[in-house]
């Protein structure tokens, strides 16, 4: 059972991810919070101490990259996975170099998401 924080500026995407994460894991994972921008993400992270964060790439105030940096700075053991659209491989690489633990591409598929989440959490799939 993992507690997850979902970060995305689109409410629709947050709903989708919540659904995929909770239903896809048959209730194993629980989304305990959502954030729509970097500030919220960092704040929510520090407050909720989730086991895992899914992070969108582009958000209003800054790119998701900055959020990853700031979260990892607060908690070096933070597990963040990037959710990105196709064609952003470069930023994905960069995010991994600053501490992201994996990535999935939109449109997000349940199976792929579960695999990446599982890997990031260090669980065997």
């Amino acid at each position: 059972m993992a507690k997850i924080l979902v970060v995305d500026d689109s409410k629709f995407m947050r709903l989708t991810l919540r659904n995929l994460l909770e239903k896809g894991s048959k209730g194993q994972h629980q989304v305990i919070g959502e954030a729509a921008n970097v500030e919220e993400a960092v704040e929510q992270y520090n407050k909720l101490k989730p086991d895992l964060v899914t992070m969108d790439m582009i958000m209003p105030e800054a790119v998701g990259l900055e959020a990853v940096k700031r979260i990892v700075a607060c908690d070096p053991s933070a597990k963040v996975i990037m959710v990105s659209a196709m064609g952003q491989e470069k930023i994905v690489q960069e995010s991994i170099s600053v501490g992201a633990k994996g990535f999935v591409t939109k449109p997000v598929k349940a199976e792929e998401l579960m695999k990446v989440v599982g890997q990031a959490l260090g669980m065997t799939v």
């Binding site: 689109s10 629709f12 995407m13 582009i58 659209a85 449109p107």
Partner: peptide
Amino acid sequence: FRVAHTLKGMAATMG
């Protein structure tokens, strides 16, 4: 660019 990008992501998710 950002808004168009978000919209694309949403639409792709819904198929």
